[in-house]
Write a protein that binds this DNA or RNA. Structure first.
Length: 800
RNA sequence: GCCGGAGUGGCGAAAUGGCAGACGCGACGGACUCAAAAUCCGUUAUUGGCAACAAUGUGUGGGUUCAAGUCCCAUCUCCGGUACCA
């Protein structure tokens, strides 16, 4: 009963392509549905076996929506700027655009072989100048609004390759490519002020339907905290401002710590008597990579600033100031008040440097450890706060700070601005020039897109500049503002740029005058359902929400949020339960699977493999079960009989299965949807035949999962094209069998099973249970305490 | 440390508080075959029993309930993310 899947799949893929079967119409009167999957990075390795999982899932949703009568937009494109292509180009001295073209062709062929119902007329590519023109345009709008700015930043610098590395290229403190030592180096970088949108990015999570874990991850990443800024005086007459979430513990502040990079150190240089020691510590801290700094976690180090003291504003006491690398310049004010009694890090530091520890909240034992879990405690040793609860003390001290002008309430975020520069070739050029007279100036829009020039080598320069920096003809230009000589920016944008707005371009991908037409955006946006990897939650997903909100403020888009619903899929692991990798030798190639079993089987198996949201190991033997199922489906053609409706013994099963499949697709429970179809086909084979009406329903339900075989079979039997038909309906009333089996429990243990008519009421059910001979004998001579009945399910008789 | 998530047969996994193990894989037995593959039929949580059946069973220990894989408290292990964030 094997079927020729290769011929059938090629036939229907060609039919869909020739007939533009999945073309999203620009008919704005129809109800729309916008289904989106993350566009892939077209790597040289070709499609990974993990790619079809989310793609098939959303393809199923898209196909079902079309059958339900929606105008569906389900597009695909290429996120093609990026490092692997550039590294390949460097190594093989070939233009990255050529590598990209080759990789895209391969990926496209592979995706088409999966029978995914993308609208290929809307294909986009982030490296296409007609596309990145608008990426650059958005950057310019941000630049004009002051959201893009230059800043001196620490970057990762490989001392061996002499290049700037992205964080992803730094593995365990070493360069991913050469294993060389990676240190920090200060470079001027373009930054985007995502922090300006922190509160809105947080607030508007309540308006979207994302998985809870996605919301939680974004919330934690944004990291809002409330507290106060407190001004400490110093013996120099300057003030030193700290941020704290625990202003209530101000009386317990026995010393201060500032970041090694804190600007006040330079200011006080003349007063400090141990400057040599301080300098040495600063150098040590600067040399440390992020890796070393976290490794050094255990032992607190630091140096006291001798010659300057701070004054605790609440009691006028003079306290010492230290520098230590556990205080970060990038968070809060780069300075902290240390309350060793109620903060673990401050406690450790105080122990090392033998500093006083004053308990200000009762309840712990501060001679042994810091008492941090003290939200319900009572204040002590705290002057006017004594006797108050921590909660009340927070309010009172904030009032005091505001009244005395020594501080104020303050909200802080962990979220930091987005480092937007890359000293690389294969990215969008940043469309600004530097003029001695006018500073940084935006290119006029008429000069967009600013294309990448051809260069000799794609290798970054010796001092870490982009390869573009070697091209005098590219760099030297005139200032759009004053007409004088100016130099172009040679940094390019990060890979995240092109993917931050790509979903908008799909709405109107060939528009020459705008990102997309207003009508197209108003009709298609927001994306109704966006599925993608959890790993993009704090980067791509957050970045694109940020850009969308900016475009909303600019009046370009009409919705506050880009995506209404966001779900996530689990990874597919190797047969050994490990991540697939060449070195482990557990990689499965989708081309091989399609050749052996066909695309329908691959799709079905990836959906059947387990809970869509969880990781799942690949199983070469389990996929056979899915092929076997499709062979059995193919065999239905041999047992078709005339007839329209559902025959009695199968009627309830059909209605139940329609319901189950319809609902399960909506909640991503593809595995149980398929299981119910398998159960149904077992019932059909037990009957020995299937009517045309039953066949139609079965084939339609299976169509989103296995589109090729179902198109072929439908076409053979009915002479029509299934993807143009309608989804099937069920009748809730007909989902119940005429009679059902119930269990009779005695004291919670199953003692008998009865067949009763459906729709039976409680009393009747109890009556029937009590009449059962085996039940009768088992409760004989005992006292009935209670009788519980769940109609259609069970009876429980409690006896003593 | 903190934030997520998960612990159920030989394996992948199912179960609105109501028969634990649907569906699939594998294994075992049978049919077809000269034989094998494929296919079809049957069995398959564990223990005891020829059997009807009984007892046990969802990481561990408690609890709530007529009834707990599911709810509550505690605890262990694993996976993912994140981390001197004041």
């Amino acid at each position: 009963m094997d079927y020729n899947f290769t011929a059938i799949e090629q036939k229907w893929q060609k039919y869909w392509e020739d007939n533009k079967s999945f073309h999203a119409e620009n008919d704005y009167s129809k109800p729309k549905f916008y289904a989106l999957v993350e566009f892939p990075y077209p790597s040289g390795q070709g499609l990974h076996i993990g790619h079809p999982r989310p793609y098939t899932a959303m393809d199923i949703v898209a196909r079902k929506r079309r059958l339900e009568g929606y105008n569906v937009l389900f597009p695909m494109g290429w996120d093609a700027f990026g490092l692997p292509t550039e590294n390949y180009a460097i190594k093989n001295k070939i233009h990255p655009a050529i590598v990209t073209e080759k990789n895209v062709a391969r990926f496209k062929g592979q995706l088409k072989a999966l029978g995914l119902s993308f609208d290929w007329d809307r294909e986009i590519n982030t490296t296409d100048p007609d596309y990145f023109k608008w990426t650059q345009w958005i950057f310019l709008q941000m630049f004009k609004k002051g959201l893009a700015y230059k800043k001196e930043m620490n970057v990762n610098w490989c001392t061996s390759c002499k290049v700037v590395l992205a964080n992803e290229e730094v593995v365990q403190g070493k360069c991913e490519r050469c294993g060389g030592e990676v240190v920090h180096k200060v470079k001027s970088q373009w930054m985007l002020k995502i922090t300006e949108y922190a509160q809105r990015l947080l607030d508007d999570l309540s308006e979207v339907n994302y998985l809870e874990k996605i919301k939680a991850t974004q919330t934690n990443w944004i990291g809002r905290s409330t507290g106060a800024e407190v001004d400490f005086g110093t013996t120099t007459g300057d003030k030193l401002t700290v941020y704290t979430t625990r202003p209530d513990t101000l009386f317990g502040a026995t010393y201060m710590v500032i970041a090694p990079e804190h600007p006040n150190i330079e200011k006080w240089a003349d007063l400090l008597t141990n400057m040599d020691e301080i300098r040495a510590y600063q150098e040590l801290a600067a040399k440390k990579s992020d890796f070393d700094r976290t490794e050094m976690n255990k032992d607190k180090t630091g140096v006291e600033l001798k010659g300057v003291k701070a004054i605790n504003p609440v009691n006028g006491k003079e306290i010492p100031i230290f520098i230590s690398d556990y205080v970060l310049m990038t968070y809060g004010t780069g300075a902290i008040m240390a309350v060793p009694a109620h903060d673990t890090r401050d406690y450790e530091f105080a122990k090392v440097f033998n500093l006083p520890i004053i308990e200000v909240v009762k309840g712990g034992d501060v001679t042994k450890e810091a008492f941090t879990d003290c939200a319900t405690g009572i204040m002590t040793n705290s002057g006017f706060l004594d006797g108050l609860s921590v909660e009340d003390a927070k309010i009172k001290i904030k009032e005091w700070l505001e009244e005395t002008g020594k501080g104020k309430s303050k909200v802080n975020y962990k979220l930091r601005d987005w480092v937007f520069s890359r000293q690389r070739y294969w990215g969008e050029p940043i469309p600004v020039v530097y003029c001695e007279k006018c500073g940084w100036v935006a290119l006029p829009e008429s000069e967009l897109p600013l294309k990448l020039p051809d260069v000799e080598s794609y290798m970054p320069t010796d001092n870490g500049e982009s390869p573009l920096a070697t091209l005098e003809s590219f760099i030297n230009t005139t200032c759009p503002c004053c007409g004088g000589p100016a130099k172009r920016e040679t940094d390019t944008m990060p890979q995240w740029a092109g993917s931050s707005w790509y979903y908008l371009r799909y709405c109107d991908p060939h528009n020459k005058d705008a990102i997309a037409s207003k009508e197209a955006l108003d009709y298609w946006m927001p994306v109704d359902w966006y599925n993608g990897g959890m790993e993009h939650t704090t980067l791509h997903l957050l970045y694109s929400r940020f850009w969308h909100k900016f475009l909303y403020d600019e009046g370009v888009v009409g919705t506050k949020e880009p995506y209404m619903k966001r779900t996530s899929h689990g990874m597919i692991l190797g047969e050994d339960g490990q991540k697939m990798s060449k070195s482990r030798g557990n990689v499965i190639n989708p081309d091989d699977v399609i050749k052996t079993y066909g695309a329908d089987t691959l799709r079905l198996y990836e959906m059947f493999i387990g809970d869509f949201e969880k990781t799942a190991p690949w199983s070469p033997s389990s996929i056979k079960g899915c092929k076997r199922f499709l062979d059995r489906v193919w065999g239905l053609q041999d047992i078709i009989t005339e007839g329209d409706g559902y025959r009695k013994p199968l009627e309830a099963s059909f209605h139940k299965t329609i319901k189950k499949v319809s609902e399960d697709i909506e909640s991503l429970k593809f595995n149980t949807a398929i299981a119910s179809l398998m159960a149904l086909i077992n019932e059909i084979y037990a009957q020995g035949s299937i009517t045309k009406g039953e066949f139609k329903t079965f084939i339609t339900l299976l169509n989103p999962f296995a589109p090729h075989i179902t198109e072929e079979m439908y076409n053979t039997v009915f002479g029509e094209v299934l993807s143009k038909q309608q989804w099937v309906a069920y009748d809730e009333n007909l989902c119940v069998d005429e009679s059902v089996e119930i269990v009779v429990q005695i004291n919670g243990k199953v003692r008998a099973k009865l067949t009763v008519p459906a729709g039976i009421d409680k009393d009747k059910q109890i009556e029937l249970a009590m009449a059962d001979p085996s039940v009768k004998s088992q409760i004989e001579g005992k006292t009935i305490v209670k009788q519980i009945a769940v109609p259609g399910k069970l009876v429980n008789i409690v006896v003593k």
